[in-house]
Nucleic acid binder design. Structure first.
Lengths: 150, 150
DNA sequence: CTAGTGGGTTGCAAAATGCAACTATGATGT
DNA sequence: ACATCATAGTTGCATTTTGCAACCCACTAG
């Protein structure tokens, strides 16, 4: 079997990138995860052009990743905050950060697991055995090749 | 403390995106992880323009994510394969795929953990307690705020 | 001698981005 | 009353990136 047989046109990676893969978008989301919610701050911290920021925010809101929320009447002002769908992008940002801090000497934040108190960077793990997983540990399988009950 | 105090200019996320955040680059890497190594195939499966593919491959090779390897003399032909550094991007691709299959109805591949045989999608886990981790489970801490021995 | 394959490069048109200025609504200071 | 500041954008135009088709080069096959 050629692994390249996976369908490209309905690929989950491609579809995701269509939503968050444009230039600047992931930097906007980085700021969102850091708690930044307002236009001016987003613009300042990312250094991006205001019109582009405006465009990206509209796209993210349209896709339900961020939501606009009124935080002040008179004059009406909105802020942008992550939806649950947006919060689910945390693993993407975290793995990007982890790679950068390992291979590019950029700085990763220090993170603490609220539940157990451990100060550590989460990693990918197999949900069954709990073992840490890297690329070579996983195999792509075709659904038809699986036993029916599995 | 404002979480937005984290430094932006040496941010691991930003640095990573500078390497793999350009348009098309992550689709090239998707193909690489699927085992595609040659220019023509990469071009066909991604649907991108040949000059852009050429540019992206050069960038990825320059950053040590892919390496060019001679697979045929006369005429000399090279293929592009993931380095260890590139293989470490697996979590990024996997989390992108996972989000897409959950929120966008795109199709995720079926994966099997070679070691335990489980057919399952890996997820983020705390390295200490092994518990599954989502965004709200983690807290950003400043290094100075940590006890010295921890 | 002609066509085909793999891996590109080149030139030009189209699209995306960067930048500065401008708008809109109100608050605040004098 | 008037000028200034703050937030959140929009607009127009210059600069960069992309997309596309055609071309190049080294060889192989017929």
């Amino acid at each position: 079997m050629l692994k390249s047989d996976w369908t490209r046109d309905n690929c989950a990676v491609g579809n995701t990138l269509a939503v968050i893969g444009e230039r600047w978008t992931l930097l906007v989301l980085r700021e969102s995860f850091l708690g930044v919610r307002r236009f001016e701050q987003l613009q300042r911290y990312t250094g991006m052009a205001r019109n582009i920021l405006s465009d990206r925010l509209n796209t993210l809101v349209a896709h339900g990743v961020l939501e606009r929320e009124l935080y002040q009447e008179r004059p009406q002002r909105y802020e942008y905050r992550l939806t649950d769908k947006g919060l689910d992008l945390y693993p993407v940002l975290l793995t990007l950060m982890d790679w950068g801090s390992k291979h590019l000497a950029g700085e990763a934040m220090t993170l603490q697991h609220k539940h157990c108190g451990a100060v550590a960077m989460p990693h990918l793990a197999c949900p069954e055995c709990g073992e840490r997983v890297v690329a070579r540990d996983m195999r792509a399988v075709r659904d038809e090749a699986l036993p029916k009950s599995a």
